[in-house]
Design a protein around this nucleic acid. Structure first.
Lengths: 226, 226
DNA sequence: GCGGCTACTTGACCTCGGTCAAACAACTGC
DNA sequence: GCAGTTGTTTGACCGAGGTCAAGTAGCCGC
C-alpha cells in the first residue's frame, strides 16, 4: 500500500461514474476534500468484517472483492466492484461497523472519501442525498439479482446469464474479453472454480467458445434457451 | 381486495415503524396524504415482476412475500416483510419498473403511498431523504445477509442462525413462536419445505424442540456450534 | 530452449438438498 | 362427530455442485 496524488485521469473516472456524474463540479470538489488515494497489490485487504471504518471507498482502477467470512476460513463474495464503483457506503449509516471484508482482486488504486463529510453533505444538499439514494437502490438491485440467480439458476444458467448481460442486445453472435480472472468470476457467481470450468464446457454445446479470457458466442438464442 | 379507512391502531403501527419513527408528525401526515388502504387474502398478488408501479407499500398487518420468477413457474423469495415494513421503494428510483413480484403470504392490510409525492418530499426535506437512505441501507444489509447465508451455510445451519436471531442474547434456553407458516420460513431461507423439516429434525440432537409453530431451545451454545 | 510458477481443466467421489410419493396431522366447514 | 382440505413430516431417489487430486496450459525469468 502506497499513498498517491489524484491524477487528471483519476478525476475523469470519477466524474464519469454513476455516482458522481449527476453532481455539479463544485459538489464533487466538496466531497473530494480530505480524500486520500492509495494503491494496492492483489490480495491486499482494505478492511475486515467487523471493523469500524470512517471511509467510503471508490475504485479508480483495478477490482475489489467484497466478501463475508464463514466457518473455517470459507469466504463468500457478496459483490465485486470494477473501476468506477463506490462501496462501503452502508457502514456510514449503520454505525460505521462493516458487515463484510474487502480485498483487491487485482492491483488497484483506491480513493478513500471522508464518510462524515459525505454524510453532512447529504444532509445539507438534497442533490447529494438523491445521488446516494439512487446508488443504494442500484446496489440493492445488484444484490437481489445475485440472490435470485443463486436460487433459481444452475451453474451453466448463471454463466449463460452473465455472458448475455455482456451481449449488446440485437446481435446474435459476438465476443468479449472477461474483465477479470475466472477465479473472480466463479466467486461472484457463487461457484467453485471447477464448477465454473465445467459450466463453460457444458455451454460449448450451445455455441460458446472460451479461449483464455476471450468468450465467443455463436448463437444468442441457444444461450437464452438454456 | 377491499378499500378501507386508516384506523388509529394502523397509525400506531406506522409511527412506531423503523421508517416513520424518526420523522415528525407533520411530515408523516404529508407522506400519508393521498395514501390508500386495502385488505388482501392470502395469495393475493400486489404486483408482478415487470409491472410499472407508482406506489410504495407498507404492511400494516399480515405478511408479504417478495419473489422473483424463474423458468417453469419457479419462485425464489428475495425478502419477506412482516407488519411495520415498507417495500418497493426501489421502483421509485429505478424507473418505476419493479424487479420482483409481491403477494400476501397471509391475510394482510396494506397501505399504498404515493411514490411521486414521497420522492418530492425526499428532495425537499433532508430528514425524509435521510430516513430513506437508512431504510435502503437496512434493506441492503438484509439481502446481503441472505446471500451470504445461502453461500456459506447448510440448511440446518441456516435454520440455527434464524433461531438464534430470535434469541434474546444472554439466555441459554428459551422458546418462541414462529411468526409465520413453516412454508414461508422455508422460502425465506431458500429451502424446499421438506428440507426445512429435515433441518429441524437434525437440530433436535442439539436441543431444539418443534411443536407446531412453537420452537424451544435447550442449549444455545450447541446451536451456535452447529 | 528450460524450469518453475500460477491459472485453469478434468476425473473421481460424495454430500447436500430438490423432487416425487405417501403417510400423517391439524383445521375447516358442516 | 366426519369428510375434505391444507400444512407438515418421512422415505426413496437422484442430480447439481463441492472437494480433493492429478493433470495441462500459459506465462515469466533466465
Amino acid at each position: 500500500m502506497k499513498t498517491l496524488q489524484l491524477t487528471s485521469s483519476d478525476r475523469a473516472i470519477l466524474v464519469r461514474s454513476r455516482f458522481f456524474a449527476r453532481l455539479p463540479h463544485s459538489t464533487v470538489d466538496a466531497i473530494l476534500e480530505g480524500a486520500t488515494l492509495s494503491s494496492h497489490e492483489e490480495h491486499d485487504v482494505l478492511f475486515r468484517q467487523g471493523d469500524s471504518i470512517d471511509d467510503v471507498f471508490f475504485v479508480l482502477s483495478g477490482l475489489v472483492r467484497l466478501y463475508r467470512l464463514g466457518k473455517e476460513g470459507r469466504e463468500a463474495d457478496v459483490a465485486v466492484f470494477p473501476k468506477g464503483e463506490m462501496f462501503a457506503e452502508n457502514a456510514m449509516f449503520l454505525g460505521h461497523r462493516v458487515t463484510a471484508s474487502a480485498e483487491a482482486a487485482e492491483a488497484s488504486i483506491i480513493l478513500r472519501l471522508d464518510s462524515r463529510k459525505l454524510r453532512q453533505l447529504a444532509a445539507a444538499d438534497p442533490e447529494v442525498a438523491q445521488a446516494i439514494i439512487e446508488h443504494l437502490c442500484h446496489r440493492g438491485k445488484m444484490t437481489e439479482d445475485l440472490l435470485a440467480e443463486d436460487r433459481l439458476l444452475t451453474a451453466p444458467q448463471r454463466v449463460a446469464s452473465y455472458i448475455l448481460s455482456h451481449c449488446p442486445n440485437g446481435s446474435t453472435s459476438f465476443s468479449f474479453r472477461l474483465p477479470f480472472q475466472k477465479n473472480v468470476l466463479a466467486g461472484k457467481l457463487g461457484l467453485a472454480p471447477e464448477a465454473l470450468s465445467r459450466a463453460f464446457s457444458t455451454l460449448r454445446q450451445s455455441g460458446v467458445t472460451v479461449k483464455g479470457r476471450m468468450i465467443e458466442i455463436r448463437d444468442r438464442q441457444a444461450l437464452e434457451r438454456f
